[in-house]
Amino acid sequence: MTAFDSTPPRQPSLWWTCGIIIATAFVAGAASGYLDAVREDGASVPPTPLIFGLVSAAGAAVLAIYLARFGRFWAHWSPRKRLYIASLLLAAGLGFAVSLGLQMANDGSAGFDTFGNGRIAFAPALAVSVLWTVGMAISIIMYQRNIDEHEKQAYLWAGLAGFYAVIFVVPVWWLMARAGQLPPVDGMVIFLLAVAANAVVYFWTKFR
C-alpha cells in the first residue's frame, strides 16, 4: 500500500456551507432591523429576539440537512483540522449569541439601534461582554493552535493590516475632532474599520 491508495470521502462544499451561514446571518439581521423599524412606527410585532432565534434555528436546520447528505465526512480529518473547524463553528456560534444578546437588550424603546451607542440595560450588557470576552478567548486560542502555516501567514498579515488601520486613522480623526472638523472618535467605528481591514487582507491572502 502506498500513500496514495486510499480515496477520502466526498466533502461538503466550503462555499455552500459558508453561504448558508452568511445567508442566515443576513436574513436574521434584516428581519430584526425590519421588526425594529415597524415597532418604531407603532405597529404590534413579535419580539425581535424570538424572530432572530427562529431564523437562526431555521438556518442551522438547513445546514444540518445539507451536511447530513455527506455522512461522516469528518471521519478522515486530522485532529488538527477537527479542532480548526470546531474553532470556526464556535466563533460563528458566538457571533449569533452576541447578536441575540444585543437584540434581547432592546427594551422596545424608540430609537434603539443594535450597533448604535444608545443606552442599554446593565444585565444584558454584562452578559454579552462576558460572552464576547470568554468566547473569543477560547475560540482564538483553539484557532491559532490549529491553523495551517499558510493560514497563519494570512492571519498575521491581516492582523497587521487591522493595526495599521487603527494607527493611521485614529490620530487624524482625534486631531480633526479637536479642531472641530469631525465628531468625537467613535470606538465602535474604529473597531469595525480594523475588522474590515483585517478581513480584506485575510481573504485576499488566503483565497487569491
Binding site: 500513500a3 496514495f4 480515496t7 477520502p8 466533502q11 478522515h76 480529518w77 486530522s78 488538527r80 483540522k81 495551517d148 502555516e149 499558510h150 493560514e151 501567514q153 488566503k206 483565497f207 487569491r208
Partner: peptide
Amino acid sequence: HNLSQAELGDRLDVSRQAINAIETGKYDP
C-alpha cells in the same frame, strides 16, 4: 498521482488553499 488539491492537502494536513498557493508560487512552504 491523480490527486486533487484537496486530497493532497488532506495528506499533508494543510488546506486546499495552501496547496494552491504553493503550486502557483504565491506561498513558499
